[in-house]
């Protein structure tokens, strides 16, 4: 565990998870591409796909994949993907 994650506040948040409705991992994957494109376009991704933001708060693996897809698209916008 990293120092950041060890803080009691953070641990408490991770134990309790996000309050309110959230998607599951399968639904998250199903909608991830639409969500990330909406984010990058500056659209209301959260309004369009309710429950996604909460799931990304509660699920580190999905959050990592979200971040990666976002980074990949951002990188591909500026330069072609490396061969």
């Amino acid at each position: 565990m990293t120092d950041q994650r060890q803080t009691p506040d953070h641990l408490l948040r991770r134990l309790l998870g996000p309050a309110g409705p959230e998607l599951g991992c399968e639904e998250c994957f199903e909608l991830l591409d639409v969500y990330v494109e909406a984010e990058l376009a500056g659209a209301d991704a959260h309004g369009r796909i309710p429950g996604m933001r909460a799931h990304l708060e509660g699920c580190p693996a999905c959050a990592e994949e979200h971040d990666s897809l976002r980074e990949l698209l951002s990188a591909a916008e500026s330069t072609p993907l490396p061969a």
Binding site: F29, L32, D33, V36, E37, A61, E65, S68, L73
Partner: peptide, 19 residues
């Protein structure tokens, strides 16, 4: 569902598998 670029939709499969 044509709600994102086809390539964006495809990339998420590669990211999931690689991750």
């Amino acid at each position: 569902r044509f709600e994102s670029r086809f390539t964006t939709w495809a990339y998420k499969f590669a990211i999931l598998e690689a991750a």
